[in-house]
Amino acid sequence: MNAPATESSSQTAGILFIGYGNELRGDDGAGRRLVDRIESQKWDNVDTLSVGQLTPDLAARLANRSLVVFADALAAPGPRATVQVDPVKPVSSPARSHHCTPGTLLALAERLYRAAPVAAVITIPGQCFDWNENLSGRASANVQIALNAAEKMIQAWQVESID
């Protein structure tokens, strides 16, 4: 099933990438495209998860992770908006709907599973969010930038972990 959740095989790896968005709404799927690319490149020690939206049950998948990286599209960005990587801290604010934010998901994982991974979110500016399955030129270029950023982040992380 495509829509609920697809996860790569290994459950024990330390790093998890979660891309989320609606692939039928053009650039809204940019975060998922990013993790698809990571998945196809089979990064060491990295699992990926591609979902329509963040739901509370994903908290269980954060257990035992050392690093969790969320990837999301940024709608209606300014003309100069760029790919951004920001740290995520647990946010204990209400989950009012089917949708969680990375912060609330992190807080859930912390409370329910004593998971305390380092977390970051990569936001990928998009351009076109109409019914469409392709990324716009701007979003696909940004996915590439995000991929490079993710790669650097993982390298730095693994170097740090060894130290």
């Binding site: 829509a3 039928l24 329509g52 939206q53 089917h98």
Partner: peptide, 8 residues
């Protein structure tokens, strides 16, 4: 099935 992440 891809319309909705909640009830595909």
């Amino acid at each position: 099935a891809r319309i909705c992440g909640i009830c595909p």
